[in-house]
């Protein structure tokens, strides 16, 4: 996950830079790929939310399903990321990377089934 803009305090700039450097050095390309998808989902969610606040919520179910599709996909992808992260190997003894991807795929299918049903 890329750094969120932390509360703007004088210390933060250097800290954020350190974080960014550490992230770039320690993360494998695969995880960076997953992270880029997460960023995309987050931007999409922010845009939808801004639209809902600024313009209209009118088809509320459509907004909810769109927004939950991004949020849901985000957390499912984040789950996948933490399951395949080699650092978490001890926590997920029973979940191999392949199993994690299968879970991710199933979860996404179920999620989008409901999203599609709710779009209206």
């Amino acid at each position: 996950m890329p750094p969120k803009p932390a509360p703007a305090t004088p210390v933060s700039t250097s800290a954020v830079q350190t974080l960014w450097r550490a992230y770039n050095d320690n993360t494998s390309d695969r995880l960076k790929f997953v992270d880029s998808f997460l960023v995309f989902l987050m931007l999409s969610g922010v845009i939808q939310f801004a639209y809902c606040v600024l313009v209209t919520t009118f088809p509320y179910n459509a907004f909810l399903s769109g927004f939950s599709s991004t949020v849901g996909q985000f957390v499912l992808t984040a789950s996948l990321r933490s399951q395949v992260n080699p650092e978490n190997k001890n926590e997920f003894k029973d979940v191999s990377p392949e199993r994690a991807f299968a879970d991710f795929a199933l979860g996404s299918i179920v999620l989008h089934f409901f999203v599609f049903n709710f779009l209206g």
Partner: peptide, 22 residues
């Protein structure tokens, strides 16, 4: 807190909440 909690709760909450609204 463990990543397992995150995975379990997030997947339950997102899908469960959306589905309950059906």
């Amino acid at each position: 807190y463990t990543s397992r909690l995150y995975v379990a709760y997030s997947s339950w909450y997102v899908i469960g909440t959306l589905s309950s609204m059906q």
